[in-house]
């Protein structure tokens, strides 16, 4: 490796990592948290079979899962100004990522809710608990344990997908890299470098997932009896 290239890579490492810490991580964290709120609400609406809301939830999931994330970003950031709604790039990205992930998360959580044995609900009724009490204290905690690996997966996917926000001028890691490439003409090395940084983030999240799964295992989810 030439000394020049080595210098560029070393120098750019911090210039890429810094927007990663300042943009990619907050963008992912905020969007994913909001997405989980949306996902739980949408899943519960479907699980509880609330009539009109259920159709709205299905419609939302249908539209969001059926259209590309990039198109959704463009609609919000470049499209909405056409009707007078101008949003800041970061805010646009948060809105799109949380709404997008909310739709996928809703399906994961709904499936997990359905996998909780029906007897849990019945036992709750028999000790006098209300539907909401049973959901909050018995069914939802068990469902979230089941959904945890899939949701962790989604989080990792989202961290990588935030690179798409470069398209709407959010200066996250990928856009930072593009700028350095434009200056130094070293696309291969630099895009590989940013790829490695994404890989680093994903690796940390995967490790965290393992720890989380162990922690949540206190009631023997893996034991799987009855």
């Amino acid at each position: 490796m030439s000394e020049r290239l080595y210098g560029i890579l070393l120098d750019s490492f911090w210039k890429i990592l810094l927007p990663g810490l300042k943009m990619t991580i907050p963008l992912s964290a905020i969007s994913f948290s909001l997405a989980m709120v949306i996902a739980v609400v949408m899943a519960l609406i479907q699980f509880a079979n609330i009539r009109i809301l259920k159709h709205l939830a299905r419609f939302y999931i249908w539209v969001i899962r059926g259209t590309p994330l990039l198109v959704q970003l463009y609609v919000i950031f470049f499209g909405l100004p056409g009707i007078g709604i101008v949003l800041d790039p970061f805010l646009s990205a948060v809105i799109v990522f949380s709404i997008n992930e909310g739709a996928y998360g809703a399906e994961i959580i709904r499936a997990a809710l359905e996998s909780v044995p029906k007897g849990q609900m019945e036992a709750g009724y028999c000790v006098g608990m209300s539907y909401l009490q049973i959901m909050r204290r018995i069914v939802l905690p068990q469902a979230l344990r089941t959904a945890f690996p899939s949701l962790s997966n989604s989080l990792i996917a989202m961290v990588k997908d935030t690179s798409l926000a470069a398209n709407i001028t959010v200066t996250e890691m990928f856009m930072a890299t593009q700028r350095i490439v434009a200056r130094t003409y070293e696309p291969l090395a630099l895009y590989c470098e940013v790829g490695l940084i994404y890989l680093m983030f994903s690796t940390i999240l995967t490790k965290l997932q393992r720890v989380g799964e162990k922690k949540l295992d206190f009631y023997g989810y893996q034991g799987g009896k009855s």
């Binding site: 044995p117 007897g119 849990q120 019945e122 036992a123 905690p141 068990q142 344990r145 023997g220 009855s226």
Partner: peptide, 10 residues
């Protein structure tokens, strides 16, 4: 219940 139906997370 026949299958006990204990709350599994408790």
């Amino acid at each position: 219940f026949q299958n006990f139906n204990l709350f599994l997370n408790k």
